[in-house]
């Protein structure tokens, strides 16, 4: 039975799943799955993350193809934004009348 430890078994690649729950919403990260290929990843993602909810669209991408910041990046990488006030909504004082926010 020790063969299980000596030979690492192949559980396929890890993929990250992004799903869009309704139109006009962005795709957001739902979790990850194992899959042998892209089509298989889509199917597995559907079965796992869309089995109850109403999902409009799914994206899958191999986890290893994602480049992410590290915790050490946090300060230099994200700090420039707070002083660029024009990038934040609070910079603009004009608020739209309520009815304009409603979807057609």
């Amino acid at each position: 039975m020790s063969t299980h430890l000596q030979q690492p078994d192949d559980q396929w690649d890890l993929w990250e799943v992004f799903l869009q729950e309704s139109q006009n919403e962005p795709h957001s990260h739902a979790g990850s799955i194992r899959a042998a290929d892209a089509e298989n990843a889509l199917q597995n993602a559907r079965d796992l993350f869309a089995r109850r909810g109403n999902v409009k669209s799914l994206w899958v991408v191999r986890s290893r193809d994602i480049t992410a910041t590290t915790p050490d990046d946090t300060v230099p990488f994200f700090e420039p934004t707070p002083d660029k006030v024009y990038r934040h909504p609070q910079f603009y004082s004009y608020t739209l009348p309520d009815e304009l926010w409603k979807k057609p």
């Binding site: 039975m1 020790s2 299980h4 430890l5 690492p8 078994d9 192949d10 559980q11 890890l14 979790g31 990850s32 799955i33 194992r34 796992l48």
Partner: peptide, 24 residues
């Protein structure tokens, strides 16, 4: 599945976890 995925974020693979399960 959700739980294996969240354990994997700690740096242990599903293969390894299955190995531990299957060897008792």
């Amino acid at each position: 599945h959700y739980l294996y995925s969240s354990a994997e974020t700690l740096g242990i693979s599903r293969e390894e976890m299955f190995g531990q399960l299957h060897t008792g």
